[in-house]
Amino acid sequence: MTASTNIAARRLGLPTSALRLHAGNRLSFAIVLLLGLVTVVALLARVIAPYDPIQSVGGLNLPPGSPDHLLGTDAIGRDLLSRTLWGIQVSWFASLLIVATGLVIGGVIGTLAGVFGGWLDNLLMRFTDLFLALPGTLVAIAIVAALGYSLQNTLIGIAVVWWPFYARIIRGEVRSIAARPHVEAARLAGISRPRIVLRHILPGVVPTAIVTASLDIGNVVLLLAGLSFLGLGQSAPAPELGADTARSLQQLLSQWWVPLTPGIAVLLLSLIANLGGDAIRTLMNSKR
């Protein structure tokens, strides 16, 4: 494991000592593994799920802990565990996708602006700031409302408002590293510009990008769940965490587990994502 993390670190251009485990870092490392575990569960949802999430498979509104239905069933007898696992799959990968899109678009724009500076920087950052200063969630809602309700459009809506944050951060990091003496020294040493960017600047941006992105996953999980709760997402029979809660609201005071189970799943995802982000930051900061 240590060998492979070292290889990963080298490929990222990080000092290997960044991932050397101190006693205090064991907990952080365990939490990062938890992130991996969630990903595996999401990946294997259809294998792990005991039942078809859309078919009625048991009694109506069975409470959690029922013999064949660990988390109970909903008003039409669908297995809540299966629906939740499928919902986790959608939620988790959609969130990762949005963060990845943000990182890629924002990363490219931020790097271009940061590396070239001048009018290009001005142009790109004006554009970015414009998006940053707009209320992202509301614009996303308006976009989905205009394009029509579907998971795909929700992802488009969020992606459109999500990248500027990354562009800002990465551009700032590129600028600050590009202004450091080691880059000037490299320039004076006669090293080519692409090589300076690839070898002397970008490896320094990677830790910030990773930490920012991992801390952001939880935000996206919550935002997606919120939009899905409002009805901006997959349509009716498909399992989706926010929407499942919204559709069973009237059962809150009679069968609370039906609306609350998907919500608790969102809480767990977001909690693990947040803890994972913090843990990754701790691990990255503990180098030296």
Binding site: G218, L222, A225, G226, F229, G242, T245, A246, L249, L252, L253, W256, P259, L260, G263, I264, V266, L267, S270, L271, N274
Partner: peptide, 21 residues
């Protein structure tokens, strides 16, 4: 800190179940 990672709708529903119901 834990509550802050919960989706607002869960907090709202949980609040209703506990403090109202």
């Amino acid at each position: 800190l834990v509550l802050a990672t919960a989706p607002p709708f869960l907090l709202a529903l949980g609040g209703i179940v506990i403090f109202y119901a």
